[in-house]
Amino acid sequence: MGGGRVAGVSALDVRGLTYRYPDGTAVLHGIDLHVEPGERVAVLGPNGAGKTTFVLHLNGVLTGTGHIEVAGLPLSPDTMREIRRRVGVVFQDPDDQLFMPTVADDVAFGPANFGVTEPELGERVRAALSAVGMAEHADRSPMHLSEGQRRRVALATVLASDPELLVLDEPSANLEPVARRELAEVLLSLDRTMLMVTHDLPYALQLCPRAVLIDNGVVVADGPTRDLLADADLLAAHRLELPWGFVPQP
């Protein structure tokens, strides 16, 4: 595995993305974001800033106005299926993501929908589960897994479709410290372009060299994660806060 990267083509290109709820409330006011292949970018912002809404646009589950291009392919109704294969979204609650009776069924769901058939399908399932260290749990029900294991299986369900861009919504939420660290190790081992929506600022610092800050539906800051987190005024202005006692090393 390892998404085919075309030289000179960016992994994600978003220009002027705006979106209103059906009742007219504006959520996104023209978001611009450019991500190069292999980058890991944290998306930070307070609750209600439009982070999750933004994520749902990247694979066309929500459609606003503006331009979205994934690995050179513009998002349109005709390309929706391929875009959904290229963008793997790991949702916040693994119970929403793991809807099939067993782990293996769930990991096979995506590639099977995208036309992968046996014997390759089984290979994909095995490879994705080993990549997250869950190969021996293939036949279990997601009900019987720990929160950390569920999170890793959720990651495997999108890895199986071999996406160009991995999008993670609050990956560390509800994880005990050990599970949180194990997930970080798995994510760092994947070597994939990654967009990580999170409130967990130390996690962003550990995993993502670059961060963007979204508030009120626009990108208000974009730069090295270390610099953003060092800017106490910027964080305070957007209701972000480092955990007590946490000081990013210069």
């Binding site: 589950v61 793997g88 949702f91 993501q97 995506g110 929908n113 479709s161």
Partner: peptide
Amino acid sequence: RVHRAMLARG
């Protein structure tokens, strides 16, 4: 939410 997660995987 489950429907969205399903859509996201084709």
